[in-house]
Design a protein around this nucleic acid. Structure first.
Lengths: 160, 160
DNA sequence: CAATAACCTAGTATTTTAGTCAAGTATTAT
DNA sequence: ATAATACTTGACTAAAATACTAGGTTATTG
């Protein structure tokens, strides 16, 4: 399990899809505009998401993407795995470093840790994040709050 | 919190340090040989680990590195944070995409998720991994098994 | 002093990231 | 049917990160 900005783009886009899932499917152009991600990059990501059976596409005017199945059944781990396609170059797969036993050992431990993270992310669904979205909505800064924030928290933050 | 092979190298090296913490400090040359990581790359990583107060160094013959403090007090999250130094380019930090409220929303959610992962990794210490090491030790290859492996798996590996 | 090992700087090949561009194909409103 | 819309595919690319090399300097031990 790798955790990069690429995965973040994918999760963000999928979350956008979840939040805007109305009667019509959501076009990539819309997501591109809302999330400020380049359309072509989204196309690449959604190509992989579709091949991993996380979304379904609808062509033609009014077309776009829609979640395949329900938001509660799609988890963050699936989304990241779909776009990352890590070939898992475990350099310790029987070659040179596996003589003393220790390289193999730490390799095992890392794989174990990586698996724990995967399990952790496999427990967070888009539905969970959608619900969470409601509760953090007030966190967003609108122009009215900017003045207070400058006087308040933000300036005090950097001092630590 | 980013999760890349770079972080894995660092965790592996730190775990090597933990497992070989005897009377003498551990030289990077030793870690390089055991873990099959280039010496200069280790130097770069340990420079960061030292600056983050995770290890102490001793120069000269018989010198090397040693954990700063106890293995139970050094957690995986610290190690990854030390070598990753992500400048956190939150593109949504008040600039262009934060108008409709939604980009900010998904940004918050990702930060939240990222923080959850950090907390998760902040709970796994080198001591924990060391203890775990004992239980997975039997999985490793010792010199007695090499012959069988050469005749078996290894020769068949490269053909794909 | 000579060997050792940390420390530092700079460069570099490779891979990944995050796109662009172009030429398609499929769908549907009209 | 035809045009417009929207997804598909592939090739290509600039920039960054990764993993490593080379060549030194500095500190410490014997």
């Amino acid at each position: 399990m790798k955790l990069t900005t690429k995965g973040r783009y994918a999760v963000t886009a999928m979350l956008d899809l979840t939040l805007n899932d109305k009667a019509k499917p959501v076009s990539l152009a819309d997501i591109s505009a809302r999330q400020d991600i380049s359309l072509s990059y989204l196309e690449q990501l959604f190509s992989k998401l579709r091949k991993s059976n996380l979304v379904v596409s609808m062509r033609g005017p009014g077309g776009g993407y829609r979640l395949k199945g329900e938001a509660k059944d799609i988890v963050v781990a699936d989304i990241i795995a779909a776009v990352d396609e890590n070939i898992d170059v475990t350099r310790c797969a029987g070659r040179n470093a596996c003589n003393s036993g220790k390289p193999c050992l730490s390799h095992d431990l890392w794989m174990d840790l990586s698996e724990q993270i995967r399990v952790f992310l496999a427990d967070i669904s888009l539905e969970d994040m959608k619900e969470r979205a409601a509760s953090v909505k007030h966190k967003c800064i609108d122009s009215d709050q900017v003045g207070q924030l400058i006087d308040g928290n933000l300036l005090n933050r950097k001092e630590s």
